[in-house]
Design a protein around this nucleic acid. Sequence first.
DNA 1: GCCGTTTTCGGCCCGACTGTTTTCAGTCG
Length: 587
Amino acid sequence: MENLEIAAVLEDLADLLEIQGANPFKIRAYRNAVRTIESVTRPVRDMVDQGEDLTALPSVGASVAKAVEELLTTGRISRMEEVTTEFPRSLIDLTRLSGVGPKKARKLFEELQIRTVDDLAEALEAGTVQTLGGFGKKSAEKITAAIERHRNRVDRFLLDEVEKLIAGVLEHLSAASGVGRVEVAGSFRRRKETIGDIDILAESDGDGGAVVDHFVSYPGAARVEAQGDTKGNIALHSGLSIDLRVIPSESFGAALQYFTGSKEHNVAMRTRAVKQGLRVNEWGVFRVPEEVDAEDLGPTSGERVAGATEEGVYEALGMAWMPPVLRENRGEVEASVSGTLPALVTVNDILGDLQMHSTWSDGKATVEEMARACEARGYQYLALTDHSQAMAMVQGLTPERARAQWVEIDEVQERIGEIRILKSCEVDILKDGTLDMPDEILAGLDLVVVSVHSFMDLEKKAMTDRVIRAMENPEVDILCHPTGRRLGKRDAFAMDVEAVLEAAAELSVAVELNANPNRLDLSDVHVYRAKELGVKVVISTDAHSPKGLADMRFGVDQARRGWLEPGDVLNTATLSEFTSWLDRRAT
DNA sequence: GCCGTTTTCGGCCCGACTGTTTTCAGTCG
């Protein structure tokens, strides 16, 4: 069982306990443990198998450790079984509907015997929901709309989609009178691989309500969900929900910090602040007067010690500012305090792109066009990685056509001069782990990259063995898009990523972080683990046109989320450093 | 349920908006 699956079960347990009305701090404790397990870079399963003490993990105590061990050995958690005799697990789906929380879910179940979203839809249709105390006409309408959205749900958006969707909103907002800085905060600013909704902050010391009015008048808005003096929300036709907060200048940094999150990062920060007699909220950092009861404090009571800038907020807490990509409570708070934050890789460090396609297979541009586009980006080298023949539908290269391409590459290299074009091939890993290209061709290539494109539904062990077998071929340099996922479309293969990374370390094979925003494969947690194991990461665009080369920045963002520094990323190497790496196995 | 450089007991992050509950609970982020 993968870490994410374990976390999902515990999350369900927390949701059910909340419906049951358990102690809120107990519920929070479970949720904290969920976050820990989601971001542990090693498989928890291995830790249990090796008899390690799970309570060494932050926020995991005796109860959660026992529950996880029980889950891994028996496939169930007895605490969960107890709760589900009282409240069916399907009630969790109700709380996922906007406007329905644990209290309402419980009430719907106890008074109307509603167990599922379908039950709820029927009851709304019949008009019985409105008869319950706490539910009126408006809430019935809201929940009906939420069910509708749930049924044709556009769950999460990709980073590149969001960038396009919000450009017009930002332009519209900047045109509002009295608005200064406009920043997008939230998971978008942290460059998370998928985005649920958008948080925009607008600086204004004037009439906040007027700014919100202007915001909700955005012509592209499908509906207005909320509208107050400091806050508004609209939904676009795509389903993307956009929150606006209007913030005075003196609080802009505090608000930017607060709404950038993550929630877990902020909790860790505020807990630290409380120990220093400070109070952090979206309005600033305040020194709490000692003899005043916390209950009597307003949001801006006490002496303001920071708030105008984000740097100032961190400084007030004795911390160094850090890039938003790190703010996931995975050790960055401690690293910031101790001055050991990583010096993250940037787009400017990238000196080459090691996966792209040309018209020799399914690319849209010629070898020369791709090379010139890479040259224009300031790279020292690129690798042409057209598909091998197993990818027949995209005219993958036969050995004969591979040789023919080498001739063309030599000609282009002659014309183009400085930038080095590496002869490569994205060789398919066949079902049995052998490679779709004869050894003499592999030996003639400058660089061999390998990928799985077929039989993606193999059993976990078979898939893991297949990929490791491919990496054992001494000609192999890079494993591309290792888990095969397509965000929001296709799950990762059933594959033991830990075992594959360990094999990569052993065999001196690099792993790709595919920069295409649909893939971003490996994930942030996996590249972090690769770094821990000493596996080199290559950030490649897999471009099929010159335009696709620009996706590099998405890959770099993901690498930064995984704490990678330039030295961890192979394609920050200069050409001569990179070619010596290619000779690493020569003795 | 978890945790400890003030604590092994007594805390645990905090504010805005909405709808309906005439003074605030529920939900959300």
